[in-house]
């Protein structure tokens, strides 16, 4: 499954690096804690979170994640969007909650 296949099901709005929509998604990791994601996520997973700390871009880059989905349409600060664009990390927002976004991706990947 590609990142772009989630667009409709999760009502995604793509905020940075549209090229990343072609990325293959191997699974998902759901957490709001940077250290947890650093320790436990795997390359190719999509990261679902409401965390909008600057370091989310670095974590996604270091772990080669397929992209970041920010839940509840939380506002992503401009400096994070600029950094993500520069480092080619795809960030999308969804109106869904973490629980439901995770649930829908899980169903699609079954």
């Amino acid at each position: 499954m590609k990142f772009k296949d989630l667009t409709e099901e999760l009502s995604l709005e793509i905020r940075t690096c549209r090229d990343g929509l072609r990325n293959d998604i191997t699974g998902a990791y759901v957490s709001d804690l940077l250290s947890d994601v650093m320790g436990n996520s795997k390359a190719g997973e999509i990261w679902i979170t409401l965390q909008t700390h600057m370091n989310i871009v670095a974590v996604a880059g270091l772990k080669n994640l397929a992209g970041i989905i920010i839940v509840k349409n939380r506002k992503v600060p401009d400096d994070i969007l600029q950094k993500a664009e520069a480092e080619k990390v795809t960030i999308a927002t969804t109106p869904l909650s973490t629980f439901e976004a995770a649930g829908r991706v899980y169903k699609m990947l079954q």
Binding site: S31, L96, E100
Partner: peptide, 20 residues
């Protein structure tokens, strides 16, 4: 299970998300 799988299994079994 991790948070993703735990959420996924419950959602698939019909548990709805908390309200907005």
């Amino acid at each position: 299970f991790c948070m993703y799988t735990a959420s996924g299994r419950l959602f698939q079994a019909g548990l709805p998300s908390c309200l907005g």
